[in-house]
Simulated assay, not measured.
Amino acid sequence: EVVVERLAGYIESDECVSACGVDRDFVGISSDAFFSPEFAANLCSPACYQNCPNIVDLYFNLAAAEGVYLPALCEKQRSSPHRAMLELLSSSGGGAPGPIADDLAEAPAPAMF
Rank of each mutant, 00 (worst) to 15 (best):
E1I: 11
V2K: 12
V3R: 14
V3E: 11
V4P: 06
V4F: 10
E5A: 11
R6L: 12
L7R: 08
L7K: 08
L7P: 00
L7Y: 09
A8N: 14
E15R: 12
C16E: 05
V17S: 04
A19E: 01
A19F: 01
C20W: 02
C20D: 03
V22D: 06
V22E: 05
D23N: 15
R24M: 04
G28D: 06
S30V: 04
S31P: 04
S31F: 06
S31I: 04
F35T: 13
S36C: 08
E38F: 03
A40L: 13
A41Y: 01
A41F: 00
N42W: 01
C44A: 03
C44T: 02
S45E: 03
P46Q: 07
P46L: 01
A47G: 06
C48M: 05
Y49T: 01
Y49S: 15
Q50R: 13
N51K: 13
C52P: 03
C52G: 06
P53G: 10
P53N: 10
N54A: 13
V56D: 04
Y59G: 02
Y59W: 12
N61H: 10
N61A: 07
N61L: 09
A63C: 05
A65F: 02
A65N: 11
A65C: 06
E66C: 09
E66V: 07
E66Q: 13
G67Q: 07
G67W: 04
P71R: 06
P71N: 08
A72L: 15
E75T: 11
K76V: 03
S79G: 05
S79Y: 02
S79V: 06
S80F: 04
R83H: 07
E87I: 08
L89G: 12
S90Q: 14
S90C: 13
S90P: 00
S91N: 13
G93S: 07
G93T: 10
G93H: 07
G93M: 07
G94W: 05
G95P: 00
G95D: 13
P97T: 11
G98F: 02
P99S: 08
I100Q: 15
I100W: 05
A101D: 06
D102S: 12
D103H: 09
D103E: 15
A105W: 08
A105R: 15
E106G: 06
A107H: 03
A109S: 13
